[in-house]
Write a protein that binds this DNA or RNA. Structure first.
Lengths: 145, 145
DNA sequence: CCTTGTTAGTTACAAAAAGAACTATTACCA
DNA sequence: TGGTAATAGTTCTTTTTGTAACTAACAAGG
């Protein structure tokens, strides 16, 4: 591999972000994978419902920036698995509110604890100040303010 | 959205990483998408060949941590589009060296400049020290050391 | 040499995603 | 009102992907 110009791909930020996200996501996936038989999009939906309570599919689309067809299919699966219930809005009958069933709540709490431990593992690799800064920067990059 | 327990999804690191990566990746994708008609994996291959020069598919697999089937398919496409040429090794006739054609070189330089500008845009949102720290942390999280 | 094992890269098949088009409902406004 | 546009969510079709199995070339020990 002879050449090497001044541009180092490995310090290109979007590249680094992707690699880091992929790595942590992969590692985390192993922890919950076969526990409730949920796919990534499914437990992301569960997370949102657990953390924020009753909300519509579109609310989740906006917050999580996941495509609506993915949400739609994930919700269908979650309803089949009895983790989520739909409730048609009376005001606007196009939308439906989603809530976790007791089984969904239990799964959420369980996954949340796994997430907390995982998060703590990452945090342990750095100082508190560094982690705080990382969160701040990622939030800004993600457009969460 | 009534509820909100002590676990804030928005500070969960893998979540933040994903969101930030998705955001920057989406924004960047728009810039090169229709320019050369390359998919993400394809220009990642171009980037590697441009930055490091002649190398084999396996070299790219190792460096970029992209699955070899993806590389294989990307290379096929890039050869069809005349951005890359294959050259079978004389020493070991299983492997083939990949290099950019002049057209590939031109595309690389162009995309590299876009990437630089994009990277600079991100960097401008923070101090130099912060960006340095971010890169360091992301590298460690990504397992690049 | 022959057998077994390893490596480079491709291909086949199944799972997942992205996009576009669709249904149903509501909103706007001339 | 009536007609057009917008929104919530689903479904259909086409691309991408991920996994596993495959071909071809080399390597090493008996």
């Amino acid at each position: 591999m002879p050449k090497n110009d001044d541009f180092d791909l490995q310090v290109f930020l979007p590249y680094l972000l992707n690699q880091a996200a992929e790595e942590s996501s992969l590692a985390f996936t192993q922890l919950y994978k076969n526990k409730y038989g949920m796919l990534r999009t499914e437990w992301r939906v569960v997370f949102h419902l657990g953390a924020f309570g009753k909300m519509t599919a579109t609310d989740i689309v906006v917050r999580a920036k996941i495509h609506k067809t993915k949400i739609s299919r994930a919700v269908t699966k979650l309803v089949e698995k009895r983790f989520v219930v739909r409730e048609r809005s009376q005001d606007d009958r196009r939308q439906e509110f989603l809530t976790l069933t007791p089984a969904g709540e239990a799964a959420y709490r369980d996954l949340r604890d796994v997430a907390k431990r995982y998060d703590a593992d990452i945090s342990r690799k750095f100082t508190d100040g560094e982690v705080r800064l990382l969160r701040m920067m990622l939030k800004r990059l993600a457009g969460i303010d």
